[in-house]
């Protein structure tokens, strides 16, 4: 049982971005991927979710043994993969509540609907945890939300969909310290022995709140270094250059 990515290669247009990335996340583990801009962090999350702009040119990705790459975008989600978007999209005219209900309904057998009372009860409880006002249920998805509200809304979706593996793509970007704490609390509440996390971030700050078991450094489309939490602290202190000096000549 794991989210297993092996030697994954992907490109957008003619540009190779992932050049053989390998990582395995087991249930209960929290992995962090750090890396400089342009190293391929966001590409990884989008490729795993099946974004059509990216072409996988080699390698494999499996979720508890199931071939992710052969599934459509929505099938991957229903198989248990979740992405908290860096830039969540606005959906005009579709309320948050209707959106979440549609997502939950898609997980039910054909023709079976979501129990409305249980749904609202659970949603309100999760919103309270994230200190989200109830009015967000009737507002259109992400429309007019502040940066922090959008990120909370992503975590609300994570909490409602209860995936097996969750990828958080730069969830800390655009958050002030209070919002960061609330969002992290929501994520930590979802940590469990049955669920794996992949936290993609540029800064180590987030990792003070969501403490990872394993830290990877992504550079030029590959994992070039793996360590424990202290690696993140070292990166914050020294930057990425030392990893580059250490890793790239060997990889070349």
């Amino acid at each position: 049982m794991s989210l297993k990515i092996e030697n994954l290669q992907a490109r957008i247009g003619e540009r190779e971005i992932l050049k053989g990335l390998t990582i395995e996340i087991k249930p209960g583990e929290v992995h962090a991927i750090m890396g400089p801009n342009g190293s391929g962090k966001s590409t990884l999350s989008k490729v795993l979710c099946g974004h059509e702009d990216y072409e996988v040119t080699g390698g494999s990705a499996t979720l508890d043994g199931e071939d992710l790459l052969s599934l459509s975008i929505d099938q991957r989600s229903r198989a248990g993969l979740f992405l908290a978007f860096q830039y969540p999209h606005e959906i005009p005219g579709v309320t948050n509540a209707n959106f979440l209900r549609a997502a939950l309904k898609a997980r039910k057998p054909d023709g079976e609907d979501v129990d409305a009372i249980a749904f609202y009860r659970q949603m309100y409880a999760r919103m309270d945890q994230l200190e989200m006002d109830r009015s967000f249920t009737g507002r259109n998805v992400n429309e007019g939300f502040s940066g922090g509200e959008k990120k909370r809304n992503e975590i609300l979706q994570l909490m409602m969909l209860e995936p097996k593996y969750a990828i958080l793509d730069e969830t800390d970007s655009g958050l002030d310290i209070d919002a960061l704490k609330i969002v992290s609390r929501g994520v930590n509440a979802m940590r469990s022995a049955e669920r794996g996390f992949l936290v993609i971030t540029h800064y180590q700050r987030l990792l003070n709140y969501i403490q990872p078991d394993i830290v990877h450094v992504l550079m030029d489309g590959r994992i070039v270094k793996t360590g424990d939490r202290s690696l993140a602290l070292k990166l914050e202190e020294k930057g990425y250059d030392w990893v580059k000096d250490e890793a790239l000549p060997a990889a070349a």
């Binding site: 989600s77 999209h89 898609a106 997980r107």
Partner: peptide, 10 residues
């Protein structure tokens, strides 16, 4: 993409 990434079919 956003909706499908939440499991909602096309």
């Amino acid at each position: 993409f956003y909706l499908k990434a939440r499991g909602i079919p096309d």
